[in-house]
Design a protein around this nucleic acid. Structure first.
Lengths: 200, 200
DNA sequence: TGACAAAACGGAACACTGCTCCGTATATTA
DNA sequence: TAATATACGGAGCAGTGTTCCGTTTTGTCA
């Protein structure tokens, strides 16, 4: 019955993989999540492997680049964030309010992940894919909210979702816990800057 | 005559240093500047040493941390930027215009230095001093411009220069040359966000 | 069940980088 | 010129990313 037939190629077969491989993949995700919390997303690979009780080879086999691992760990939350856009658009008082709420969501996500915002913009070796995944996944949602706010006349047109997302991500970079620097305040400033001068 | 007496301690004696030491220090600055352009401010120390034709020990003796070297290379430009504040305040049409011009100056400086903005916020080992120097040097100037604009009623009070500077610095982080991301546009948005809703 | 092939594992080993340490070379002074 | 303080050079250690291959485990089939 568990015929491992795989007609096409597709992104996520997960069929035909050996039981130990599946087990280890899960173990690695759990270990990585834990290590990310304590040591940040750029923790030594060895540390994650040790935590999971596997060898270095295993980690690289499952997650060829660091970005693959980070994406896997945070995939759920990113997808959730992407999905929240339309919902907020429906529920909020105005498109701009929805945009603001959504941005808050995104910022909350970033600031609670030690070093993630940094990694997102890092020009380091294994992080491009991370950058790409986040942007690919979230820019469309952001664009939808942005467009709605433009259509409603609440904000000036001309700003691209890609640029805004990167800007917000950038503002979230920093040693966490500095009371003199709160990304939220600056992000708020950025959003205010988007507004139409006069409500027409 | 060149009595090497040094009464106190002070920051910059530079007296009594051997001729070769002085020469090497200069050579290192030149080499570092060149390497920073091609390989970024986080180029391998070995590369800089090789370029200068000196050993590793020499570089560490003159510049104990990476930040010391980076600061030394860019000191002139940073001081210049700090000094430009008052001048702009005098010459511009309004304090806000002066602030904008000054920010432009700062952004221009950052975006033309490969990886400098990154390093400024890096939580890496040898970069804290860099962060500190830039902020110590530029925050007062920024605060002066900010206060003037507040006093003139052009912008809302409540924003701190430190936070603004860090935000601007953060926005300048990124792989340079991405046509879809222009720090200047976002910085402009930030400045617009600072303005008073109604010119009172 | 037992044997065999494919899949997966583990970790030694290599490369690269930051940084230190100390024997050697050079400048300065008397 | 001799003596001494300074400065130099680079080998060497430590931490990390990444690869490679001999060994082990799993799944299959007779």
């Amino acid at each position: 019955m568990p015929t491992p037939r795989r007609s096409g190629e597709g992104p996520a077969p997960a069929r035909g993989k050996r039981a130990d491989a599946l087990r280890n993949q899960q173990t690695l995700l759990t270990a990585a999540a834990a290590v990310f919390v304590t040591s940040g997303v750029d923790a030594p690979i060895r540390e994650i492997a040790a935590r999971a009780g596997v060898g270095m080879g295993t980690i690289y086999r499952h997650f060829p680049t660091r970005a693959d691992l980070v994406v896997a760990v945070y995939r759920h939350q990113v997808e959730e964030c992407a999905a929240a856009g339309p919902r907020l658009l429906d529920g909020a008082d105005s498109p701009f309010a929805a945009l603001r709420q959504w941005v808050d969501l995104f910022v909350d996500f970033l600031v609670t992940k030690h070093g993630l915002a940094n990694a997102l913009q890092s020009d380091g070796s294994g992080f491009e894919a991370l950058h790409t995944y986040f942007l690919d996944r979230l820019v469309p949602t952001c664009a939808q909210l942005l467009d709605a706010a433009v259509d409603a006349g609440e904000i000036r047109p001309g700003t691209h979702a890609y640029e805004l997302m990167r800007g917000i991500g950038n503002l979230c970079i920093g040693r966490d816990g500095d009371p003199r620097y709160d990304p939220r305040r600056l992000v708020e400033l950025l959003l205010i800057g988007l507004r139409r001068p006069q409500p027409s």
